[in-house]
Design a protein around this nucleic acid. Structure first.
Lengths: 167, 167
DNA sequence: CGACACATGTAACACGTTACATGATTTG
DNA sequence: CAAATCATGTAACGTGTTACATGTGTCG
């Protein structure tokens, strides 16, 4: 996912917003999993405007502006949501590449790489489960889902590491 | 994982190689999961040289060159292999972000997003398992591991989608 | 000869990221 | 008044990616 798509997804809700508001919204929605430098919002918005996906309304005498989706932008959001995330789209699996490269690198102990990774992943797993216990199911649905995604991914990772070690 | 790190990992094997060879090796090792434009190899190698991690030896009268690791480069590889992949390092979970954003976007049917994703993931899962059946366990260990990683990740994804739908 | 693999590169552009600069408004 | 928050941006740099240009060697 790009910042681009994230901002478009926020803007599809309708009401035009300031760049600054988009920044806070972004972090709220993604449960602060994706910290964002405000500057990035503005550069990204500028690129979106350049590409005709958002339009800007000069708002006040103070130089504040509001951004809204164009029709084309609306289409882009729909397209993005309609298209599933595929392995082609997604970045390559960093861990898999790493282990596979370690396999053929003589100066590297694969077993150590795997062990270090397992420790780190298990620790992360504990952190996530702790966070999940503390979370409020009523108000923080999104946050819980994000946590679940991380947990399931981490579990799959551990299982894969086991497989690797078996060879 | 970056191309940078991939190339360094290849070079740690010892023998200096041409940029062109590194390209083929890279694809071989990663089981062609990561297709690479040759040009990228050269730009990346130039950056690595700039940073003092690789050194170049002019090789022939024809302009061919070989690249080898410097001591600093060797250190960088060791560091990379020693450091586990963390959620901070890794790119954000695209699917999770997407679904979470869809949850609060009125113009978007979350159920449809989830369903489209599940279909795509299940299809990918079938493809991977088919590939796994066809693979030769004796000669293609790396390829099998890559496949397993994809399979486990895909399974985790489906499980997560189930969780999402339950809410 | 023509196609293909080998071999090296550049130019242009995209996005992500950090650091920096600037000012208005609100609030303790 | 001072500090925090709101608000907008630019500059500089890093990597990834595609397309293009160029030339040698080999094999059918």
């Amino acid at each position: 996912m790009t910042i681009r798509q994230g901002l478009l997804a926020l803007l599809v809700e309708g009401d035009p917003r300031y760049g600054y508001q988009l920044k806070s919204d972004f972090e709220t929605r993604t449960s602060s999993v994706w910290p964002l430098n405000v500057g990035q919002v503005y550069t990204t918005l500028a690129r979106l405007e350049r590409d005709g996906l958002v339009a800007v309304d000069a708002d006040g005498s103070d130089g504040s502006k509001t951004y809204r989706l164009t029709d084309e932008g609306r289409g882009a959001v729909q397209d993005w949501f309609a298209a599933p995330v595929t392995r082609d789209t997604a970045p390559r699996d960093e861990l898999a590449m790493k282990v596979v490269l370690a396999l053929s690198a003589p100066a590297v102990e694969v077993a150590e790489v795997i062990q270090a990774q397992r420790s780190a992943t298990l620790r992360a797993l504990q952190d996530y489960t702790a966070l999940k216990r503390e979370a409020d199911p009523a108000t923080e649905l999104a946050w819980l889902l994000v946590l679940d995604a991380q947990i399931l991914a981490a579990e799959a990772e551990v299982r894969w590491l086991d497989l690797c070690e078996a060879d």
